[in-house]
């Protein structure tokens, strides 16, 4: 059969999560009502998860769900960093539980048990910074030429002449002399770095922080890499 009637695909969504700080349902109701009153249209039928990691095991899950639905939210399930027992309990009651990889750091330190629980969780679609692939340019980049590695690292096997420009959203590696301009992390990436075998650049820039030649005197003509430390450009010798 060429076409299946169904298909499974992974997708990530942005869901509102309601964090409960107390088991007192009356207090929760009062605060929620006033919140919804500020923007009734915005909250109408909005799907939400309820984070219960700050509450006792003993709360009435059904009552929480009913409360949420009475206020015209669409109840999706519970979430939070909780023990396996609590999770099983929630599922036994017939509610869905959505795992989260986010672990509150203070809890991580204080309650070992919870940390272990969180680590054994199956990781569901962790949003990540894209991993950059490499654009490789063989040969010298001459004066007046511009090479841009969009969403990529740039590797130049050769020198970059004065008056040439190399730009990458990721890192820049120059296996030769860097005499022109090098702009790494062009779309904002503070961990981007610039590597070259001989630093004689007109300008280097990482994540919008730049140096002109005069700032490079310390390592002029040497093999170095340039990186950001606390929004300050730093050059370090490679060898």
């Amino acid at each position: 059969m060429a076409v299946a009637s169904i298909e499974f695909k992974g997708t990530s969504f942005t869901l509102s999560v309601l964090h409960l700080k107390t088991s007192n349902l009356a207090a929760i109701r009062a605060d929620l009502v006033s919140k919804v009153a500020q923007a009734p249209d915005f909250f109408y039928l909005v799907p939400i998860l309820v984070n219960i990691e700050k509450l006792d095991v003993s709360i009435d899950y059904q009552a929480v769900k009913t409360l949420i639905e009475e206020l015209n939210f669409t109840f999706v399930g519970f979430t939070g960093s909780v023990t396996n027992e609590q999770r099983k309990l929630i599922r036994k009651f017939g509610f869905s539980f959505v795992n989260t990889t986010k672990v509150n750091t203070s809890q991580k330190v204080t309650t070992l048990e919870k940390v272990v629980t969180a680590k054994t969780d199956i990781i569901v679609e962790v949003p990540q910074r894209p991993l950059y692939t490499d654009k490789v340019h063989r040969g010298q980049i001459r004066s007046g030429q511009q090479v841009y590695a969009k969403d990529q690292n740039l590797v130049v096997i050769g020198s970059v002449s004065a008056g040439a420009e190399v730009i990458a959203d990721g890192n820049i590696h120059v296996y030769g002399s860097l005499r022109g301009r090098a702009i790494a992390g062009a779309q904002g990436h503070h961990k981007a770095q610039i590597y070259c075998q001989k630093l004689e650049a007109e300008l280097v820039s990482i994540n919008g922080n730049y140096w002109l030649s005069e700032s490079m005197e310390q390592h002029w003509g040497l093999p170095v890499y340039i990186h950001l430390t606390d929004s300050e450009l730093t050059s370090s010798k490679l060898i």
């Binding site: 980049i141 001459r142 004065a162």
Partner: peptide, 13 residues
Amino acid sequence: VRDSDRILGMLAS
């Protein structure tokens, strides 16, 4: 030298 470098870029492209 810089102008020659520019011309070399043109020759290659």
